[in-house]
Amino acid sequence: MGQRLVGILLNAAAHRGIPRGRTGWESLACYEEAAAAYGLTPCYMKLSDINPVYGYCAAYIKGPRGYKKMLLPIPQVIHNRAIYAVGSTGTEQLTAYGVKVFNRQSRYGKDEIHRLLELDSGLRRHLPDTEAGTEGLEQMMKRHSDLILKPRRGSVGKGIMRLKRDDNEDWILNYLHNHRMMKANISPSRLPFALVNLMDTGTYLVQERIPLAEAAGRPFDLRVTVQRGWGGEWAVTGLFAKLASPGSFVSNIARGGEAVEAALALEQAFPSRAAAHYRMSAAALALAVARSLESSLPGLADLGLDIAVTQDGELFFIECNGRDQRYGFYKAGLPEIWKESYRRPMGYARYLLDGGAMQ
């Protein structure tokens, strides 16, 4: 065909929607514009359509009449944008056949990431106190008065709960249900069976709640996109703030949060000079996290990291997202950074195609 192909590995739902142009927030137009800038042609794939033994795959490529599914040689470089069940070895199999798959795993357990970062003495002070299991929850209720309970492998804020001790020493569990905030009283001596089950099955973790800085009374954290680009080095592509909806403790956009420019939120919370300092410090912390994780997580190249800034100006790492929801930049009114978040991975793909070493 005479084209230099780069594979974009999508989940089945997004892949299925390609002929109708319904791929959710995965912008195929952004991939195509970004790939063209590096002399590449993107082809959109799902794992079940790839046969590494024979070296061929069925993939969509855009042509004059829209997207056409074609039989193609497996691209030498593939950017994974899919999420697979725990235990899936599909991307590892491709790697074993010599395909350079970057971000080969796109979802990591929160406990796994926390454990890896705890090994880095330079980052330990930026990690919230974290425990697991019912015993861990009971210990945390003795150490802290405000806790966050979160799924080990959840995403977009689904299932996050807050457990807080009020002025009367009573514990209140807050959680979202159908975008409504619900409350329940909890006794430390008689924890509900459902909560014990979540903790003891390893489904949930418990962390101290970081007292987030607020903009107009709304808590916020920062999403920092860190990616490899041309040359293979990590760089911060951009960042934006995620504001919790009024009265909520969850900042995720998919749970009613709002994306705004980071500078706007920070300057509502702090004086201008301090706001600029915290913005740069959050970017530096995100880079340090990516560089720390790369030695343990092969193929890491495209991350969305949540960084908290406290009311006192301390910075904490909250979460690592291996499939960054880039649309936050678009919703924050930052379309050029949104497009750049597509360009940098395509630059990295070209670097790998030209013989660059994969970390």
Rank of each mutant, 00 (worst) to 15 (best):
L305M: 02
Q227A: 07
L334P: 02
A269E: 08
D146K: 01
G87Q: 10
L10N: 06
N103P: 01
Y351F: 13
A14H: 10
T201M: 01
V156C: 14
W230Y: 12
E314W: 14
N51V: 13
T225Q: 05
F249E: 04
Q359E: 09
F102I: 07
L297C: 04
Y56D: 14
I74Y: 00
L239Y: 08
P52V: 09
Y67D: 11
R4C: 04
K150R: 15
G347M: 08
G328W: 12
L116Y: 07
P188L: 05
R16L: 13
A288L: 08
E26W: 00
R153Y: 11
D49K: 01
E261I: 04
L163A: 04
L149N: 01
M141F: 10
A215Y: 15
M346P: 07
V250I: 12
L198F: 07
A216C: 04
A357P: 03
L123R: 06
E319P: 04
G202I: 15
S145K: 05
Y108V: 03
I83A: 02
R104P: 00
R125V: 06
A215T: 09
L28G: 08
P151N: 11
R279S: 07
T237D: 02
P52M: 06
L127C: 09
T134K: 05
R323I: 02
L297V: 09
V289Y: 08
A265W: 08
A14R: 15
F316P: 03
N174V: 01
P211S: 07
V86C: 02
S145C: 14
E258H: 08
R22F: 12
W25K: 10
N103S: 11
L71W: 01
Y108Q: 04
G256F: 07
E131S: 09
S189H: 09
K150A: 05
D354R: 15
V289W: 04
L119Q: 07
Y327E: 00
L176M: 12
E214K: 15
N11M: 09
D129L: 13
A12I: 09
W25D: 08
N174K: 05
F240E: 07
K339Q: 12
K68F: 10
S281F: 01
T225P: 00
R125Y: 05
M199T: 11
E294L: 01
L137H: 01
L315R: 02
L300N: 02
H126C: 11
A269P: 04
A13S: 11
P19E: 00
A13G: 06
P19I: 05
Y67E: 05
R162N: 07
D302N: 11
E319F: 09
G229Q: 10
E208T: 13
G299H: 03
S245R: 12
G304K: 06
M181W: 07
